[in-house]
Design a protein around this nucleic acid. Structure first.
Lengths: 207, 207
DNA sequence: TAAAAATGTAAGTAAGCGCTAACATTAATG
DNA sequence: CATTAATGTTAGCGCTTACTTACATTTTTA
């Protein structure tokens, strides 16, 4: 069957993310996939190749890219809220892969870099080009667009990993939107006093 | 001898960080420590206890705390530059431990949380209290101090892990100070146009 | 329905792992 | 110097692991 392979790939993703490459056994993966262990080896010549093909099969398409056009209709602030939300959603979807990425850097630095590149690098470029456009329109200050994008996404990436991997599983995302608003506010207006806007605003329009 | 124990602890830190808990063997650790494998087991009843005691022995004191007083003499912007630099230095010192933290969450969620708490939680509180003080003095906008601290440190934590674990080992820290300046600028002044300051400033005074 | 492809079952191999036992050797101590 | 504590050497046990072999059974295909 065609989907035997997929069942194995899915099971391996789940178990690798929970127990790591060395911690997950082929017997266990096969069991989780509802398949004989031998079948696993008939599809993938070794555990290592299973790992590689699993990674490759989950190597993802450029997302968040088609999102750029519709940002034109939003205020700068709301656009960032939108981007942050989309980014966090994307990270949630890929949480297993991100966990593996964190755990297995020492085993597969190249593969991991590739994931990181696909996962973050792409959206960094997208966001940077958005910033560049806004700067050319005189709507933003002068700052390095790529660095700015990394700073912005870095805040949220760090928030995500902290929530996913460190914080107790209770009340997850309870304060997600509040965090997004606060972070976006800081990014847009800064923190130093002596200017018009302040944080506890009501410029809503999203959510 | 007293330092046999320490040699084992040091070797285990190095190897666990490179190969992970399962990937590092007791034989290898003993060899790296210049010690017989049996000696390792005479000091630590099991590999697991070695791991725990290694973590405990590297569980660190509150740093960056005594730094707060001298921040009074700096401008807001320079204070943040100082904090960011100190934070990045601290992360560099503890890079092995951070790597283990990333790799071994699934094995020791409790221990890892403890590290994260000691490593980031403490400095978050410190920075948050700094923000609170500045807000009471009317020098900063109103924003949640703890969230702000997390946003600020998150940018740099993400920058650090990206540099350490993803980027090629060349040109490390070549642009470190530039990144710090840019990030601090964004955090202080925001990115939206229509205000006095702009990014490519010259408010130097640090470095 | 017959041939071929995919999967299952069961048993096992070779290697590596954490860890222990027995005894010899060195270093610290009084 | 004699005693004790710490370390080294070697061999090995029991277990798990990735992976294989041989053969039976099911599923797909033509």
């Amino acid at each position: 069957m065609r989907d035997t392979r997929d069942k194995i790939l899915d099971a391996s993703l789940a178990l690798f993310s929970i127990k790591g490459f060395l911690g997950a056994t082929t017997k266990e993966i096969a069991k989780k996939a509802g398949v004989a262990e031998l079948t696993l080896f008939r599809h993938f010549s070794s555990k290592e190749r299973l790992f590689e093909e699993m990674i490759a099969s989950h190597s993802f398409l450029p997302a968040l890219k088609g999102l750029l056009p519709e940002l034109k209709d939003l205020s700068y602030r709301d656009a960032l809220v939108q981007i942050a939300g989309g980014f966090l959603n994307r990270l949630s979807e890929r949480r297993d892969l991100i966990k593996i990425m964190h755990s297995e850097i020492h085993l597969y630095p190249a593969k991991v870099k590739e994931i990181q590149q696909n996962l973050v690098g792409e959206i960094v470029k997208t966001l940077a080009s958005y910033f560049r456009g806004m700067q050319e329109g005189g709507l933003l200050k002068e700052f390095d667009p790529e660095l700015g994008a990394r700073a912005f996404l870095g805040m949220f990436f760090q928030y995500f990993t902290n929530q996913e991997f460190v914080v107790e599983k209770k009340q997850k995302f309870e304060n997600r939107d509040a965090v997004i608003r606060e972070y976006v506010n800081i990014f847009v207006f800064g923190t130093e006093a002596g200017k018009s806007n302040n944080g506890s605003g009501s410029t809503d329009g999203v959510r």
